[in-house]
Design a protein around this nucleic acid. Structure first.
Lengths: 190, 190, 190, 190
DNA sequence: GATGAATGAGTGTTCATTCAT
DNA sequence: CATGAATGAACACTCATTCAT
C-alpha cells in the first residue's frame, strides 16, 4: 500500500492558511483548499474528519509553534517586569517573522470556529505567564485588580498593534515595541 | 409611502443583527434574513445593492448610533483626563445597553466584510476624541508616542473587556469600569 | 411575481416515475430527475422539501389515483364474491393501463423509502375492501382464519401476476385474470 | 492459504447481509462493508469483480443454502399434496431460522440488482418442485391453468406471510403455517 | 495475497441573485 | 413598490474503484 504522506498534511495546512488569509473562511471552500494543496478534495478527508477539523487543527498547529517560540529562554527566576518585557518582545518577533500564521490565528479567534475549539488546549500555553502575573501581584509590583483587566493591558495590545487591519501605520521596530511595552507596564505596575 | 419604506429597511437591519448574532455571518443567508424581516428576498434588493451592502450598511448604522451616544454631553473645554474618563464610561454604558448591536459590530470588524468598508466613514465618528488626545499631548499630560499606541491602550480595552467571548468573568459594573480606566490612564499619561 | 406552476410539479412526478423505472431509486439522482423534468435542481426544492419528500409524494399521488379507479362503481350491497371479483378485475385493468405507475409503486413499497411513509395514509384506501371481507366471514362464505392469510391470497396475487419481473409469461387478458380469480376465491371461500 | 481465503469471503458475505439489513443497499458502501468484515476495501476486489458482483453473489449464496434446506428429505414418490405440504413447512422453517438471510433475499429481489442476476441460476433450484406440479396436473389433482398462476398461489404466499413488513401480525407457528397451506392447496387443487 | 492511500465523479442541498407579474 | 418563483453555480462530503507497496 501507499504510505501516508506527512507532506500532504503539511501542504493542506499551508494551503488553508494561505487561502483563508487571502479570501476568508467563508470563501475558502474545501475544493479550493484541496486544489491549492494539489490534492483531491477526497484526500483531504483522509487526513481530517471534515472541514471544521481542518480549520481547527490548523489553528492548534499554529498555536503550538507560537507557544514554543515564546517559551524559549523562559526563566521564571528573573524579575517579573523583565520576564514580561522579554515575552512581549518575543511575541512581536514571532508575529513579525510569521505574519501569515498570525493573521490566520487572528481571523480564527474572531470567527465562529472558535466555538469548536477546546479552549483549555490553547490556554495551557499561557499558564506560565499567568503564574508570573500572580507572582507580580504577590510581590506588590503589579496592581491587585481583576485578573482579566491585567491581561487586557499586558497581552491584548500585542494582537492589536501587530494587526495591520487595526493599526496600519504602526510598524514592528525594536523601538516601537519597547515604547508600547512601557505603556503596558505603566498600566499594570503598582 | 415614505413611512412604509423606512419600516422595511429598519426591519431588515434588525433581522440582520438578530440572525447574524444567532447563527453567524456564514449561515445568515439572504432568504433567511428576508423571512426574519417578513419581506421577500427580492424586496431586499430594492433597499440594498446586494448582500454585502446590507451587511456593511447595518454595521455603519450601528456605528452611527454608537457615536451619537458617545457624543452626548461632549464638552471639549473639560480637562483631557475627564473627557476620556467620561467617554470611557459612556462607551461601556452603551455597550451594556445595546449588547446585540455590540456583538454584531464585533463580529463584523473581525470578518472579511471589513475589507468592503470605507474605513474613513467610521473613523470620522472618532475624530473628536482624536483631537482630545492631540490636545493632551500638546498639554503634556499624555505621552508623546505613536498615535496608534495610544489608541490601543485607551480605546481597544473596551471592546476586549466588554466581549464575553474574551472576558467572561469581567462584568460591567461602575467599579470595574472605573478600575479599568485607571489602568488605561496610567498607560498613556505622562 | 411568477406564478407557481402546477405543470412543473406534474413534470417532476412524471420524471421521477420514468427515471426510477429505468434506473432505480439509487441511481435516480436529484439532478438527473431535474434534468428529465427540464427544471433546475434548485427548483425541485420549491415544490418538495427534499428528495425523500419527492419520492414519497410521487408514491402517494399514484396510490390516490389507483384508489380512485378501484372505488369506481363500488357497490357494498352486492354479494361478497361479486364485489371481490369486480375489484380484482378493476385492479388488473388499472395496472394494465398504468404500467409505469404500477412499477413505480412496486419498487417503492419494497424499498427503504417505505419507512418514511405514513402507512395509515395509504391503508385508508383499502378500508372498504376490508369491510367486505369481514362481511364475508360473518355471512360464512369466507373462511374464518387469520386476516392476513386472507389478504395474502386475495390481494397479493395481483401484484405478483402483474409484475413482469416475477411473471413474465403471464399476460393480463380477461381470460387469464378471471382464471386467477377462480384460484383466489377457491383459496378463501368456505 | 486456502482456509484464510474462504474465511475472508465468508466474512464479506456476512458483513454484506448484516449491513444491508441494517442500513439498506444504498448506504451499504464498499468501504463500510469492508470495515465490517475487517478487510481492506482493496481486498474485496480480489474476491469479487466489483460491488455488484458481491451483492449478487451474496444473494446466490443465500439461495443455494435455502435450496439445500428445502431439498432435504425430498421424496418424489410421495403424493403431490404431501410433497407440497412438506416443502411449504420446510420453507417457513428455514425462513424462521434464518431471518437475516431471508430479509436480505427479499430486499435483493425487489431491488434493481435483480436485473444483474442470471435468473436461470436461481430458477434451477426450483426445478424439482416444478416437476411435482407438472405431475399434479397430469394426475388431475391440480388445476390445469397457466403455470405462473399456480406458482403465484403455492410459493409466493410464503414470502408475503413471512415478511414482517407486509404481515406484522402473522407469526410463524405450526398451526398458522398449516392453515395457510390449506388455502394454498384449495386454490390450486382441482 | 493484502493493504491503506488516493482520487474523479458524483451526491443532495443551499446560495445570492434575477425574472415576470 | 413588492413579490414568490426560478436558477446556475457552488457547497461539504461520499462513492466505487485503482494504485503503489
Amino acid at each position: 500500500m501507499r504510505i501516508k504522506d506527512d507532506k500532504k498534511k503539511e501542504a493542506l495546512f499551508l494551503a488553508t492558511i494561505k487561502l483563508v488569509n487571502e479570501i476568508g473562511f467563508v470563501s475558502s471552500s474545501v475544493s479550493k483548499i484541496a486544489k491549492e494543496a494539489n490534492v483531491s478534495p477526497a484526500t483531504l478527508y483522509i487526513y481530517f474528519k471534515n472541514k471544521d477539523d481542518l480549520i481547527v487543527s490548523t489553528y492548534i498547529e499554529i498555536k503550538r509553534s507560537m507557544s514554543n517560540a515564546m517559551l524559549e529562554d523562559f526563566d521564571t527566576t528573573m524579575p517579573v517586569r523583565d520576564i514580561l518585557q522579554q515575552t512581549w518582545h518575543k511575541i512581536f518577533s514571532y508575529v513579525s517573522d510569521n505574519r501569515e500564521d498570525f493573521r490566520y490565528a487572528e481571523q480564527f479567534s474572531n470567527s465562529p470556529y472558535t466555538d469548536l475549539l477546546d479552549k483549555s488546549e490553547v490556554q495551557k500555553f499561557f499558564e506560565p505567564f499567568i503564574h508570573v502575573i500572580e507572582r507580580g501581584i504577590k510581590e506588590k509590583v503589579i496592581k491587585d485588580v481583576h485578573f482579566e483587566i491585567l491581561t487586557t493591558f499586558i497581552f491584548s495590545p500585542v494582537t492589536i498593534l501587530a494587526n495591520p487591519n487595526h493599526c496600519h501605520s504602526f510598524s514592528i521596530t525594536e523601538q516601537n515595541v519597547e515604547t508600547a511595552f512601557q505603556l503596558a507596564w505603566d498600566a499594570i505596575k503598582l
